[in-house]
Each structure stands twice: as C-alpha cells, then as structure tokens.
Design a protein around this nucleic acid. Structure first.
Lengths: 173, 173
DNA sequence: TAGGTCATGTAAAGAGTTACATGATTTT
DNA sequence: AAAATCATGTAACTCTTTACATGACCTA
C-alpha cells in the first residue's frame, strides 16, 4: 500500500522522504497518512526493487536524498491502479464502541456522542475552505480526482453528523 | 482493541473462540472482524489479566473452551467505553487509488468505478433486509445501538453510491 | 539563543493476517 | 464417502507506530 502511494506521489516529480510526509499531511490526511518510520524503509525497498532511484545532495546546507520514479516504477503503479477498487469497508473505530453502548450509562453515552459531534464539526470546518477551491478553480487541489477524495471526506463527515443527531434524538425522548 | 471487543461480546454470556468469530461475522463484519490467529491469543491474554475465566468441556464430542467475563473484566470494558469516542477517520482503501486516478486512462477509470458501484450495491442489498427489522422490531438486532451501527453502514454505502455517480457524471461529459 | 522546522534514519514493540496442523461431527 | 462445519491453536510474516538518536538551518 504505502509503496504504491509513494510511487503515486513521485509521479509529479522527485521528492525526499520528508516531502512525502508533507504531501500526505496536506492532501491525504483524511484517509491516509504514514510515519517516517514506515516511509524511509519503504523508499529503501523501492530502490531495491528498482521502482525508484535516489540521488543524494546538499541543499541549503541540508543533506537530502531525492527519489525519482523509474520506468519500472511507473509500470508497477499503473498495474496497481488498474486493479479493481477494493470494496470500501466502513471500519471507523467509533462504531466498535457504539456497538456496546448498551452497557454504558445513558448520560455518558449522550455526553460522548456530543463530543463526537463537536469533533467531527471541527473537521468539517477545517475542510470546507478547500472544498470551494476544489470544486471551481482546481487551484490548490491539482485535479478532479484529488478533489473528489476531499469531497468524499466532507460527505462522510456530514453523514456522521446526521447519524449522530438521529441517535441523540432517539436517546433523548 | 480486539481484547475489548471480546469483553463486549462476553457480556451476553460465555462463549468459545469459535463463537466469537461467528458473532463478529454476523454483527460487526461491516466494520470489524478478526481472525482465529488473533482471537485465541487475545483470549489467552485476557485470562492472564484475569479479565475472563475459561472453562474446558466436551459438548457433543467436541472439546471446547468457554470463556466468561469477570468483575474485573467488566470494569475494564466500562472504562474503555467511557473514554471519548475516537474521531472517525475515513480511511477506505479505495480513496487512495482514486487519488491517483489522473494517471489511469479514463475508460479504465470509468470501468473501475462502475465495478465499485456494483460491488457496493450488493452490500446494500445484503444489509437492507436487516434494516427494517432493526428499525422496528429490534428482533434480530438485539438493541438500538447495535442496529445503529448497521444503519451507519447502510448510510455509508449509500453515500458512496451517490459520490460515485457524481464522479461518473463529471467524467462522462 | 531558544524553539521550530527541515531532514534522515534505526530499534523495539504492537497488532494483526495467512498458512499450517490437527481432529471430531454433521450434512449431503 | 466426501465435503462442510465445528473447534483450537501455533509459527512465520507483514506492516505499521512510537520512541529514540542526530544534526543543521531559520525565525522571533
């Protein structure tokens, strides 16, 4: 997974391990993020497999290793992208707890659901400014597919708010 | 995570490792499932921690180990449930690929999105019969919280269909 | 000059899956 | 008689995070 994502990011030009982390934070953090402890070893493996090449350099006094995708790496990425999409599992950790909420006192349940709502609303507020840009100018978000992942996130969070409201309503009457 | 989920399932009576797997398949498979390779070791750890007790027996010629939650285990479960809910991350693997779909030929993109739609629609059809039961009689689904996780799944899948349709529409004009 | 950011990397630990190994009972 | 299901468990492996270790440059 991570290896393929790195290949994807390298399609738009050479990057360092640090750059990759930044890009994930900026563009994919609502559905994917990796730590340095996984990024650097992944880059090493990709070099071994000849999917990327590395180039050591010093820029503004800082030692860097810039990685570029190879022909072989592009082939690999394409093969991965071509495969059918995995069925989206819901997976969110919060459901696992809610599933057992019959064992938690009602007041505590309501409290926790309200905190969740607040939390999710904060996410939405953080993403909303990007959304307009994404839909019209494609300014910050380079293309339609990338912005579609952002819109997905937004729709998802809105759905959670509705669902939480619904639960709260049922609980309070 | 798994340990707490097991404790949750044991609240409704003693169960074997095999039973637990069945329950997950039936009730939580749209957001959580574990393999035997993780369930049995988890039960062992829970016994060590004195959160559950085990009882070996032979039933219909089959050697079984039935596990029960202890007072200490119940305390542990409650403490876990009381904590604030984790912020739901979107996480679905399919977004990771769509993010890089600019590199895949348009026809292939459309093809894959259509397959995804078909796939998700099958999920919905599988869940829909449970939904009515869940909303009214609480028959199969023991309580409101458990059915709310099912409704969450359904809403989620519906959202994906809408989102996919939207993308397809944009692509085809 | 202190704190933040840029930059790379390793070691240990965690949490899980897959594959294997075994064997009885139940259904077809 | 074969295949499916019930039932338990281990070993190897994978993928990842957290914490640590190091050090330079940039900004207030």
């Amino acid at each position: 997974m991570l290896e393929n994502i790195i290949l994807g990011f390298l399609m738009s030009g050479e990057k360092t391990g640090y750059d990759l982390k930044q890009q994930m934070l900026k563009y994919t953090s609502n559905f994917y993020e990796a730590s340095f402890g996984s990024i650097y070893p992944a880059l090493k493996r990709l070099v071994e497999k000849q999917f990327v090449t590395s180039k050591d350099m010093v820029e503004r006094g800082k030692a860097k290793s810039k990685y570029s995708i190879t022909r072989l790496g592009k082939k690999e990425l394409l093969a991965w992208l071509e495969e059918p999409l995995p069925s989206p599992k819901t997976n969110p950790d919060h459901l696992v707890k809610v599933f057992f909420y019959e064992y938690l006192p009602k007041e505590k349940v309501i409290e926790n659901l309200k905190i969740l709502k607040k939390d999710v609303n904060q996410y939405i507020r953080r993403f909303e400014p990007f959304k307009n840009k994404a839909q019209k100018s494609f300014g910050n978000y380079p293309d339609g597919f990338k912005s579609s992942t952002l819109i997905f996130g937004l729709n998802y969070y809105r759905m959670i708010i509705e669902w939480t409201d619904n639960l709260l309503e049922k609980l309070q009457k």
